[in-house]
């Protein structure tokens, strides 16, 4: 379970998160929507400790992410994150990209790590690209590789930060299909997304962020069919 309690976060004088409360249960898929600058992505980077918070706390399976005593490198094994920008390690083949963390962080043998990597690459449909370098992959393939790389650590939670935003429109589908597969497998996911169709079809709950505040959260039918909040309605009518 991920518990976010009254989290505040600023960059200099810019308040990005203004008291966020959110609990994500095991197996739940929560989509976070909202305009740019609403704090959606910052929340994800706070959840796995890439950014510190100013106040409030975030607990992942009861472990407080920003507590001094927390070993972040250990905690991050449980939380996979995929970013908007493609960030393959260009000097490693696809297979090596995926086996790096299991080998170095979990201390797995090369064979063990490769078994897992091959399974994950097959899962995201890149089974035939194992020995190529990332530069030979399309954007969509690179994103799927990043997903396989995160999954190879067998995380309990996956965070997706606008993973389709930098893709050509015709490549968006293949990545969303991969996310749907994951959701069907019962993975706990928080997806920051601009893909309203995906948010509606796959999520258990949809949260709307507006200027650092979670303005509304609810089941997709309610958010897309009968939003209570004026800002939510306005946002949805602008993106439709």
């Amino acid at each position: 379970m991920i518990e976010i309690e009254n989290v505040h976060k600023s960059f200099g004088s810019l308040k990005v998160l203004k008291g966020i409360d959110l609990t994500v249960a095991k197996g739940e898929v929560v989509s976070v929507i909202g305009g740019s600058g609403s704090g959606k992505s910052t929340l994800l980077t706070c959840i796995n400790g890439l950014e510190p918070v100013d106040s409030g706390r975030i607990l992942v399976e009861g472990v407080e992410v920003h507590a001094r005593s927390t070993d972040l490198n250990k905690l991050r094994r449980k939380i996979g994150i995929v970013f908007q920008q493609f960030n393959a390690f260009p000097h490693l083949t696809v297979l090596e990209n995926v086996t790096l963390a299991p080998r170095k962080v979990k201390g797995m043998s090369k064979r063990e790590a490769e078994e897992i990597a091959v399974k994950q690459l097959d899962h995201v449909g890149l089974g035939d690209k194992k020995s190529v370098y990332p530069s030979r992959l399309s954007g969509g393939q690179q994103q799927r590789m990043a997903i396989a790389r995160a999954l190879a650590m067998s995380p309990g939670y996956m965070l997706f930060d606008e993973v389709t935003s930098a893709l050509d429109p015709q490549l968006v589908g293949e990545v969303l299909d991969t996310l749907k597969l994951l959701a069907d497998d019962g993975m706990t996911m928080i997806c920051v997304t601009h893909e309203m169709g995906f948010a509606r079809d796959v999520s258990d709950r949809v949260a709307f962020f507006d200027q650092g505040v979670m303005a509304e959260i609810g089941p997709p039918e309610q958010i897309f069919g009968d939003a209570k909040n004026e800002a939510t309605r306005k946002f949805l009518s602008s993106v439709r």
Partner: peptide
């Protein structure tokens, strides 16, 4: 080395040292 690549390495649980030597 792009900051996002290093962030990806750290997000996988690699330590600063591993990020340096491996990536």
């Amino acid at each position: 080395v792009p900051a996002v690549t290093r962030r990806a390495a750290r997000s996988l649980g690699l330590t600063w040292r591993q990020d340096m030597t491996q990536v």
